[in-house]
């Protein structure tokens, strides 16, 4: 069972107040730390668990600048055999272009695989489509939001996809295939600093992105401007006697759609 796992290095912005440049053309991430995309972390863990049971090797692949080497080291520390970095000029915002790059890379470098894993989405752009586009381009079957792998058969895999409202669907999908892995499918192991130091000794491979685009399609979509979403209002203290405030409270619950 050979698995390619797509990993992305993303800024950790949950607690940050992000600043947009005055002309709206960029978001300042200069003081924000980065790490492996959380969903990819689950994808790597799932691949490692599968290969521990079934045998096979895992190759981590990432698109980005040299800093993205960090997520490959982490993937190796978790159990990947090696890591490949597709070095791009600047950030690739369009998921279509990312998928095109990955397709070119996998085909030109003759990467062999039974499955390709990625996270459901990246924490930064939250597009959630790179794996699906890649699957269609490669002509492979695809399933997203994979929340459980139930059985591996000879040429197929039985898995569960997460739907809305506490429902899952169980499907059978032929291999080779592309799966996007949902968070919560497993509990990713902790990777210690000593583990990462050891992984740093495994050689990673570096490739230039321009080789894989065939001079073709640039981005199909462009970000023309960044802007702040409408501001949330501050805490409103409900005023009045007990009965009034409670009535207002019930009104809010209705407005939010949790009370009929």
């Amino acid at each position: 069972m050979d698995i390619i796992v797509l990993t992305k290095r993303v800024p950790v912005t949950q607690e940050e107040e992000l600043k947009i440049a005055p002309d709206g053309t960029s978001v300042d991430l200069s003081r924000v730390p980065f790490r492996m995309n959380d969903w990819d972390n689950y994808a790597v863990e799932e691949a490692v668990r599968l290969c521990e049971k079934q045998g096979g090797v895992i190759t981590g692949v990432s698109i980005g600048d040299m800093e993205s080497d960090e997520v490959l080291r982490r993937a190796i520390a978790m159990g990947a055999k090696d890591g490949c970095l597709i070095e791009s000029q600047g950030v690739v915002n369009d998921p279509f272009t990312r998928a095109l790059l990955l397709k070119g890379f996998i085909e030109k470098e003759n990467l062999s695989f039974n499955m390709i894993f990625g996270g459901v989405q990246a924490e930064d752009d939250q597009f959630g489509v790179t794996c699906g586009i890649l699957a269609a381009m490669l002509g492979l079957p695809f399933a997203s939001m994979v929340i459980g792998i139930d059985e591996i058969q000879n040429d197929a895999i039985i898995l569960r996809r997460e739907l809305e409202g506490g429902i899952q669907e169980r499907i059978k999908i032929k291999m080779p295939c592309v799966l996007s892995i949902q968070s919560g499918i497993n509990e990713p192991r902790y990777v210690s600093i000593m583990g990462i130091r050891k992984a740093s000794k495994v050689e990673r491979k570096y490739f230039k992105a321009d080789k894989y685009l065939d001079g073709g399609a640039g981005s199909l979509i462009d970000v023309i401007r960044w802007f702040y979403p409408p501001k949330k209002e501050g805490a409103v203290i409900l005023q009045g006697e007990l009965e009034d405030t409670c009535k207002q409270l019930l009104g809010i619950l209705k407005e939010k759609g949790v009370l009929q």
Partner: peptide
């Protein structure tokens, strides 16, 4: 153009489709 949230709704991006 279409608006889409980035970074868990901290900023929105405005996207054009040039083609």
């Amino acid at each position: 153009t279409f608006y889409k949230s980035y970074y868990s709704d901290k900023v929105y991006g405005e996207f054009a489709v040039p083609g």
